[in-house]
Amino acid sequence: MLWPTSRQADPAGAPPDADLQIHAARQVADVLPDILVAAERIANTIALGLHGRRKSGPGEDFWQFRPYTYGEPATRIDWRRSASQEELQIREREWEAAHTVWLWPDLTGSMAYCSHLSDTAKRDRALLLTMALAIVLTRSGERVGLLGAMPARADRKAAEAIADILGTLKDPTALPVGAAPKRFTDVVVFSDFLDAVEDVSAGIARLAALGARGHLVQINDPIEESFPFTGRVQFSEAESGLKLTAGRAEVYRAAYQARLAERRARLQAFCRKMGWTFAIHHTDRPVSEALMALYTRLTDDGTADALPAEQIGGGI
């Protein structure tokens, strides 16, 4: 996609093409410490709104005591507790059903864009959502990993480990090429999905064929939605360097918005066909909206329909 040259996130004195990948990686590394702090704060603010998943079943951690029911195996009786209560007590353990969620933020050139209608770049919002979701999920006992780049883990430092890897990623891709998630795991991708619809669909199909359930979150700057440009405007494409000068930019608005809607409809239809979900999040909307909606989607039983765009914050 083309953007106004004056609103590119990179300064006019950007390094030559040979150094662009290193320059972009350094930009990501620079913002990650602050993003981790913000992710922790956001995860804390929504913690009270999250529903628990604890239930009795096979596991190692103690959950609760309850009275013995006739017919249960005697091996489940806690004799010490029973003696103090003067009735037979069963020691239940918490059900261990840690789910694996694979995360992937798109850090390619188009994601660096930020307009005057937002205070954050699409890339930074993708990183923030990735870190915050990792924190929330691991606190809930889930396993999170970086798709194709880091094995899943359930400890509290998973988000920091993901940040370390992303901070040194020199060749980012919109969708991981060689990732192979196992069946019954979830994949969450944060991207603007501005690549050819056929390429995005092919990547989704490959991951879905492995048995993974996926969730695409399209992150857009609000200016990409409204296209408010008028008069003479020069647009440039961040990754290819393509430039276009429009004498009257406003005449392109209707065609642009129709093309954007058509792309989204195709992606949403393909996701529904694959059993995946597709949603939209704008960078001028609260992060907590998208985070809560995603957590709900990831912890349901998988039988609900695809998540409507408006339920994840700033949808069309």
Rank of each mutant, 00 (worst) to 15 (best):
S118E: 07
E237I: 02
R93D: 06
D221Q: 03
L146Y: 11
G241N: 10
D34H: 15
L133D: 04
L291G: 02
Q21C: 07
A205K: 11
L146M: 12
Q8D: 04
E224A: 00
L169M: 13
A293V: 06
G57Q: 08
V28N: 01
M292H: 10
I22F: 12
L169H: 14
V187Y: 03
L146S: 10
A149P: 02
A309P: 07
Q85M: 14
Q311T: 13
D221H: 03
K122E: 09
I204N: 11
R123H: 00
R285S: 08
G203Y: 12
A254W: 05
R206L: 05
L146K: 10
G203V: 14
A47T: 06
A304F: 07
W276P: 06
T120W: 08
R76N: 06
R153G: 12
A306D: 13
D284M: 08
S56E: 15
D19N: 10
A74W: 01
E250T: 01
K273N: 12
V251W: 02
E239Q: 15
V136R: 01
I77M: 11
Y252S: 11
A212R: 05
T100E: 01
D106F: 00
A261E: 13
D78S: 14
A126Y: 13
T299N: 12
E92N: 01
R183T: 13
A209Q: 13
A309H: 12
R253Q: 05
V28F: 00
T75A: 15
G315P: 05
S56H: 11
E224R: 00
W79P: 05
D171Q: 14
L307A: 06
E239S: 13
T245M: 09
D300N: 13
R272C: 10
P67H: 07
E224V: 00
V187G: 04
T277S: 15
T283V: 06
L242R: 10
L207E: 08
G178D: 14
A24R: 15
I77K: 13
R253S: 02
G145A: 05
G13E: 01
F227V: 04
A152P: 07
D301S: 09
E310F: 14
L267Y: 02
P286K: 04
G214D: 09
F229G: 04
V28Y: 01
F278L: 01
F65A: 06
Q21I: 04
R285L: 04
T230Y: 07
